[in-house]
Design a protein around this nucleic acid. Sequence first.
DNA 1: ATGAAAGCGCTAACAG
DNA 2: CTGTTAGCGCTTTCAT
Lengths: 341, 341
Amino acid sequence: MDLREIARRAKVSTATVSRAINHVSTVNPQLAKRVWKVVDELGYFPNTQARALVSGRSRILGLIVSEITNPFFPEIVQTFEHLAVENNYEILLTSTVNDPKRMEQSVRRMIERRVEGVAILTFGMEESLLEHLRFRKVPLVFVDVGPGAPGIVNIRINYLNGIRQAVQHLAALRHTRIAFVAGPPRLKSALARTEAFKASMAEIGLLPEVIVTGDHTMEGGMRALVELLGARDQPTAVVCSNDMTAIGVMREAYDHGITIPTDLSIVGFDDIRLAQFMTPPLTTVQMSQKELAQIAFRALLDEVGRESRSTQKSEYELITSLILRRSTAMARLLNDAHREQ
Amino acid sequence: MDLREIARRAKVSTATVSRAINHVSTVNPQLAKRVWKVVDELGYFPNTQARALVSGRSRILGLIVSEITNPFFPEIVQTFEHLAVENNYEILLTSTVNDPKRMEQSVRRMIERRVEGVAILTFGMEESLLEHLRFRKVPLVFVDVGPGAPGIVNIRINYLNGIRQAVQHLAALRHTRIAFVAGPPRLKSALARTEAFKASMAEIGLLPEVIVTGDHTMEGGMRALVELLGARDQPTAVVCSNDMTAIGVMREAYDHGITIPTDLSIVGFDDIRLAQFMTPPLTTVQMSQKELAQIAFRALLDEVGRESRSTQKSEYELITSLILRRSTAMARLLNDAHREQ
DNA sequence: ATGAAAGCGCTAACAG
DNA sequence: CTGTTAGCGCTTTCAT
């Protein structure tokens, strides 16, 4: 069942069927109705591949994420998909799982399917791989990279805003020994958070001495708390580079009989959906995944629609801010707690 | 840059290029090498749409889920994607978000992109919508539906196994008043769990009296515990129809100062990844999402590959089983706990 | 406003 | 074993 069959049955040319289906305004309403009738009767659906082939537009947008099982991403994927269907696009979702081979595959898959643009919402990506995409002038959206070429748009995250709020919130609660569990140093986004923490502490005259390195996983968070517990001067509060880390810290605290927030205050980062499901609900810096996805999609769509190289705004900013829940409380020394026992 | 260009530069015909690229064994290795050289030099990637159009094979598989943000699904999507790339397929992911309009769109999108098969791994789907797919003889994989037509494969979940283990585990811990928080009655999968609970209780001479209805959300779980707390004879243990419900119960328990597991034992269902991240880690019945995805993919691929209607095995079973963690303990009456205060 | 016809990039007969 | 050629299903000039 194809266009020609519809044309035959509706007694019009294939051109007319094509026009009718695509709502070209110049077609005689009479004919259009006749066409649509046949279309509905036969349950005809146009073949997208043929369409793409002739029009040169695949109506597919690429979305590269790190891992869909990382709780940070599902919301992004969902929002992206939602916007895509609204705009008559499909999305080609690939995950790198931090594997160079998979990253290369990702790029290949994107090119083979002739995506019209790609959003790279992943932590760290081999720059060189994107050369293929750039070479083909495929519009690209990044997070947290430096200013790029035309056709490359960048979403900048304002980490400082939220982290400063977190630190000040903790300080107001009389915490002075505030630790930070950093993310993997190879990630720009992790580094930026650490810097924001240091700056926020310095700003209010606190020493950001206690910084341990995690890896943005729950296990890393668990290890980080153990390390913190071994320190001479134990912190009364800890800010984590992401929520998974914070969850790991909470989990490890539970195993040590440390009660959150009375014994230790914890602040996360990201505000993944599950943060609010923890016991206690996690106070965290929100970096709206939904908003991020919306910005990325919108930017991509704009870029795709742009014919010429009229370099418009290609920098976007996403603000972060503290969400107060119940994992922070007034400072109280761990040592005090132990003495009471 | 297309096949013809490669042909021209390699001084062979387009047919030869096509053959070389597709690793047809009969091509002269000499020529093949020449072709590949040019391909690599130019960074040529075949156009999948053209390929699909002429071959009649899109190399796309559909995957319909309820909501990617539902923690049950990311693992499934990941596994599916992984298997897909391994087999040179793309996946077209759609979510119904329990919205009839979105379900219809899902089906339309599948058909327009000419998917070769669809896995419907969703809770509840308007049967009638699938008519379009069935009509086009698109192989379909379902979970938990009755025996279907040829080309329709069904994955049956053995709920009883895991739930029985859960109930017996609780009974061994001296619990006798074991409550169940059911899922939405409109879902077959939820109903089946409730039945499995009843049967498991009856089997060991316990009365499954305390059954409250949740909705498979965390909020539903929270409400369920409130309801349970209002009952005359409060349960000492509760089995939940899914993990989100269990997490809701835990969350509400926290708000009431009820300690898990000493005051109340909790068992979940699904074993979503985050179950092990809870405090305490949630004991739950595992229904392996990874395995489910693997079965679904394998079944789909088999069905797609099958030329004739040689009706082979089209029933698969997924077993469930209890994963012990730390949300259950020996029975102890809530009333006792209160008296102690 | 409608139709005839060319052709998007590729594969698969078919011939040689 | 390699090349020639005819489409796959659709959109889009170009005439009419």
